[in-house]
């Protein structure tokens, strides 16, 4: 059982009276890449927000890295080793690439509370390294990312995740707003994570991408996990029928 990276038992989330997520049982093993698919409002993003500590669950348990966890916020989750690319890019547009990569985990020359002196040179060097290992091409990392294309910004966000990834990477719709080439770039980064053995939870609408990239596909419908399909044993039509409710009206284990 030690190869289980992430497990949720009975994970449930209400927003007021709305049941966004109900009794989600999910397991992710070491090195495994799992896609989370489902219609809009099926509970995919809610699921991610509970794991990453952005929101507090209503009920259920989360086990990460062998221990039950209760992350009070995304930073705590990140410190525990969960790196996330959020659907809304968590980037500061007016900062350059190194500042964004190291946002909230800056390196210092010396510490002096809020007036700690930043080690900008090292952060810049590490940024260039990180972009290199993830094969992301950013022509000038010293420009504010406001001036960059949507794809480049997404790549910065993903490079940040990939560069600091230690135990688990979560991506919420990483390619939703991207063009063909940019999507290919992001998919390459994901393959790189697979090679490095970093486990991944990928939330996506793109079934072609999902079947291409991951080992296993978990289908959400109306706040419940309705199917867990191994890549070799399923196809697009099969997944769609679970998403739309043609198949699998009984809850399943993810």
């Amino acid at each position: 059982m030690t190869d289980i990276v992430l497990e949720t038992r009975g994970l449930t989330k209400y927003y007021g009276g709305v049941q966004a997520l109900e009794d989600a049982n999910f397991i992710l093993r070491a090195g495994e890449h799992v896609a989370v698919v489902g219609d809009n409002g099926a509970g995919k993003s809610t699921f991610v927000r509970q794991i990453t500590g952005v929101e507090q669950r209503t009920a259920g348990q989360i086990f990460f890295d062998g221990r039950e966890t209760n992350h009070a916020g995304p930073l705590e989750a990140r410190e525990a080793g969960i790196e996330t690319v959020f659907q809304t890019l968590a980037l500061a547009d007016d900062l350059d690439v190194p500042s964004n990569l190291f946002l909230g985990r800056e390196l210092f020359k010396f510490r002096l509370g809020p007036f700690s002196w930043l080690d900008r040179k090292t952060m810049r060097e590490r940024t260039l390294e990180a972009l290199k290992t993830t094969a992301v091409k950013i022509p000038n990392v010293d420009n504010p990312i406001r001036n960059m294309s949507g794809g480049q910004r997404q790549c910065v966000a993903i490079a940040r995740t990939a560069a600091f990834a230690s135990k688990l990477v979560i991506m919420d719709e990483p390619t939703a707003a991207l063009g063909v080439q940019e999507t290919a770039q992001v998919e390459n980064i994901i393959r790189g994570l697979k090679e490095r053995g970093v486990p991944l939870v990928l939330v996506s609408h793109n079934l072609r991408q999902v079947i291409d990239l991951v080992d296993r596909i978990v289908v959400f419908r109306r706040g419940r996990i309705v199917a867990s399909l191994n890549k070799g044993e399923t196809d697009g039509n099969d997944i769609v029928s679970y998403i739309t409710g043609v198949k699998g009206s009984e809850p399943a284990h993810g």
Partner: peptide, 16 residues
């Protein structure tokens, strides 16, 4: 300061 003024939600999410 720049991060918060630029994108407060992102700053919060980054643990600031």
């Amino acid at each position: 300061s720049y991060a918060i003024g630029s994108n407060e939600a992102a700053a919060r999410m980054s643990g600031i």
